[in-house]
Nucleic acid binder design. Structure first.
Length: 221
DNA sequence: TACTGATCATTC
DNA sequence: GAATGATCAGTA
């Protein structure tokens, strides 16, 4: 087990030392078994890299590197080097607090400092031969923070009003709300549009691929 | 090809 | 059950 990094510098050095390795090579180093069916172990890559870098948050609702306040996200790229999938941020509250502000929200805290670890040609390469790319650290610029905050306010307001029927993944320019659960049958307690208790499928906040494409482009000028 | 809605594994 | 880690798969 890799110990947790004690500084941002140490974390970045570790992350960049991974560049060029294949997932199979890293798994062998870490004593991580390759999944028999990659379609059924969607979180495998993220968990392997957490282990290799010494993430210490487990599955608690805290940044992966607790002492540094840094969140780790893998960023699967296509063969053109562009993110294709959205990035999960965190779950949306089933009973949101009406007075909550953007800078108090779990989304804001999660995105405060993110270590992005690109996975090259993730959609075209079998999992064991996918290569790790050049990691980069990101914090939202003032402009990005503003736009994220606007999206969050819009979505949070709909959640607070219980207007679930108006919520879809179409809303939001950088952020979106989409289902986040085992399946469409999963439910969590919440409130409907009339304020009555009901059970609804859980949602999660995601960053659109459009946005992570921008972040990647900014990171290698 | 991009996007949305659905889904899979694991841990506490 | 609710959080973590995400990608799959159908369709526009």
């Amino acid at each position: 087990m890799t110990p947790a990094p004690t500084s941002e510098h140490e974390l970045m050095a570790r992350a960049r030392a991974l560049a060029g390795l294949t997932l199979g090579e890293l798994a062998a180093q870490e004593g991580f078994a390759l999944p028999a069916d990659a379609r059924r172990e969607k979180g495998w890559t993220g968990q392997l890299i957490e282990r290799a870098l010494g993430a210490d948050a487990g599955n608690r609702a805290q940044p992966d590197f607790t002492a540094l306040g840094i969140e780790l996200k893998t960023l699967p790229l296509d063969r053109l080097g562009r993110p294709r999938e959205s990035t999960y941020v965190c779950r949306a509250p089933s009973s949101p607090a009406a007075g909550l502000r953007w800078k108090q929200s779990p989304v804001w805290h999660k995105l405060r400092r993110v270590l992005w670890l690109p996975i090259e040609a993730a959609h075209e390469t079998p999992l064991p031969t996918r290569r790790l790319g050049w990691a980069f650290l990101w914090s939202p610029s003032d402009a990005e923070d503003h736009l994220l905050g606007e999206d969050w306010e819009e979505l949070h307001t709909l959640l607070c009003l219980g207007r679930r029927d108006e919520i879809s993944a179409h809303l939001g320019t950088l952020l979106q709300l989409r289902p986040k659960g085992a399946d469409a049958q999963e439910t969590a307690p919440g409130y409907d549009g009339d304020g009555r208790a009901s059970r609804l499928p859980p949602l999660g906040f995601y960053l659109r691929a459009r946005f992570t494409r921008q972040l990647l482009a900014q990171s290698n000028p």
